[in-house]
Design a protein around this nucleic acid. Structure first.
Length: 210
DNA sequence: ACATTAAGTGATT
DNA sequence: AATCACTTAATGT
């Protein structure tokens, strides 16, 4: 764990801060599909991703989901940041996209480090910014792209965060993420396959165009 | 061999 | 682009 921490955060954080992190943070391992955070839960700790990827979802009144963005190693969750300043409840759901290793840092530390370490401050601010940009990108995608383009983008994103162009999933799951129906996903996937952009198999999609 | 789950398709709105 | 209704294909028991 020390090595992974050093590897992904070493250049960002002061040595004393790294030492404090190792001292205080709780190491956690989650399996693919596990919920890290659900809507309405109160936030007590900030996650630092060491390995793997997390998907962040929004849910509407009917319980339908919509994927907002992925979080990768070296990232933290911006929603958590905005929530823990006040003691708000979570507005989003976080599900492990792959098996994931992370460090949980209690919110009190987060606030203390904000003043104490410049590296931490910069990290939080930077992350907040990139998360904001990603959110804007998803808004753009939703507003301007047609569903077939959204679908391809989603597959490419998914391949990116898992570092694997073979995506193991069902059409139904993709439909949930994009907030559409399975039939539509099947049709569009078929179209993308005909265009030579992907290859379809049962429970698996290979992305050819990255 | 049979049941279950995933994926493909025409027709309708 | 969504939904229905149905078929076909793959996989588990």
């Amino acid at each position: 764990m020390r090595e992974t921490l050093q590897q992904h955060y070493g250049y960002l954080f002061e040595p004393e801060l790294l030492a404090e992190i190792q001292d205080i943070a709780v190491y956690k391992k989650v399996k693919q599909g596990d919920y890290l955070m659900d809507i309405g839960e109160s936030i007590t700790a900030i996650p630092l991703l060491l390995q793997g990827a997390i998907k962040i979802l929004r849910e509407d009144a009917d319980g339908d989901e919509l994927l907002l963005y992925f979080i990768e190693q070296g990232d933290t969750c911006a929603m958590t940041l905005s929530c823990c300043l006040g003691t708000h409840k979570s507005e989003i759901r976080a599900v492990a996209e792959t098996d994931t290793e992370l460090l949980m840092i209690p919110v009190e530390q987060m606030e203390r480090w904000m003043g104490k370490y410049e590296g931490w401050q910069r990290f939080i601010l930077d992350n907040y910014h990139t998360r904001m940009m990603e959110l804007l990108e998803t808004v753009d995608t939703l507003a301007f792209l047609k569903l077939d383009e959204r679908l391809l983008k989603h597959l490419q994103d998914k391949a990116k965060v898992t570092h694997d162009d073979h995506i193991r999933t069902t059409h139904q799951e993709i439909a949930y993420d994009l907030h559409t129906s399975r039939v539509v996903v099947s049709r569009l996937l078929k179209k993308l396959e005909r265009e030579g952009k992907i290859a379809l198999h049962r429970n698996q999609i290979k992305v050819l165009e990255l």
